[in-house]
């Protein structure tokens, strides 16, 4: 810093000086996420970010969702995994465009990866706009919660075998979510899972959380989720202002 007037430009820098920054460490990711969101808005696409531990049923939920909504809504899927193309292959088998992002070890998707994935997805979808793009995050209940991807709707899944204490143990994921899906409810008789506890603790962290209970195996509760998606996708402006 300049010794005479204190300006940060010229002069002798042997003395220390302090700069107030007050900027989020996530600023670069947030900028990219906002750009992604603008892009989704411009094409009238609802972007949904699915977050859960490995094995909570994200991909199976997507398969069933596509099965029921695929004929009325144009769906695309961005799959995040550490390795393999398997999930994207499962989704393509349902007849919708899907791209796989393999993070090569990273435990979460970030906005930049999704931006690239979205361009590939649009190519695979031959440039026609999507009504809904699902982003299936890397299976992990911790790290993905920190990174905005530009989604409109963040959905957290918790399956019955995982235990109803997870909202208390992994608060950040539940705080940042818009919807909370309790999955595999057909297994409720076999596990010590209290739906009351899961609901109460999740709502204590996030009073605005929308909660669904469902089993894709029996189909119980699936309709409420599908109706919610129909309504959410339909409520986006069809031709938003630039």
């Amino acid at each position: 810093m300049c010794d005479t007037c204190g300006c940060p430009s010229a002069g002798d820098n042997t003395k220390g000086f302090t700069v107030d920054v007050n900027q989020s460490l996530l600023a670069a990711n947030t900028r990219q996420a906002e750009e992604n969101r603008r892009h989704f808005d411009a094409t009238g696409t609802l972007a949904v970010n699915l977050i859960s531990s490995p094995g909570s049923g994200k991909t199976t939920l997507l398969e069933q969702t596509i099965e029921h909504l695929g004929s009325e809504l144009r769906i695309g899927v961005i799959e995040g995994d550490i390795e393999t193309e398997r999930d994207a292959a499962r989704i393509r088998a349902k007849g919708v465009p899907a791209v796989q992002i393999t993070t090569g070890g990273a435990c979460h998707l970030d906005a930049r990866l999704v931006h690239r994935g979205l361009h590939d997805l649009e190519k695979e979808g031959e440039g026609k706009p999507f009504d809904i793009v699902f982003i299936e995050n890397v299976g992990n209940l911790v790290c993905p919660a920190t990174f905005d991807l530009g989604e409109h709707e963040r959905v957290i899944l918790l399956s019955v075998p995982e235990g109803s204490d997870k909202p208390v143990k992994y608060p950040k994921s539940f705080i940042s979510a818009d919807s909370f899906l309790i999955t595999k409810t057909d297994l409720i008789d076999y596990f010590d899972f209290s739906i009351t506890e899961a609901r109460r603790e999740a709502l204590r962290l996030n009073p605005e959380l929308r909660i669904f209970e469902l089993s894709v195996t029996t189909g119980t509760g699936l309709d409420a989720w599908l109706d919610y998606l129909r309504q959410r996708a339909g409520s986006l402006p069809a031709c938003p202002a630039p």
Binding site: T14, T18, V19, D20, S24, L26, T146, S176, P207
Partner: peptide, 17 residues
Amino acid sequence: LVREGGDELILKQVEME
């Protein structure tokens, strides 16, 4: 009770020479 903040991640200040 409504929670405010607690999820911040902020670079506040840097001292340099």
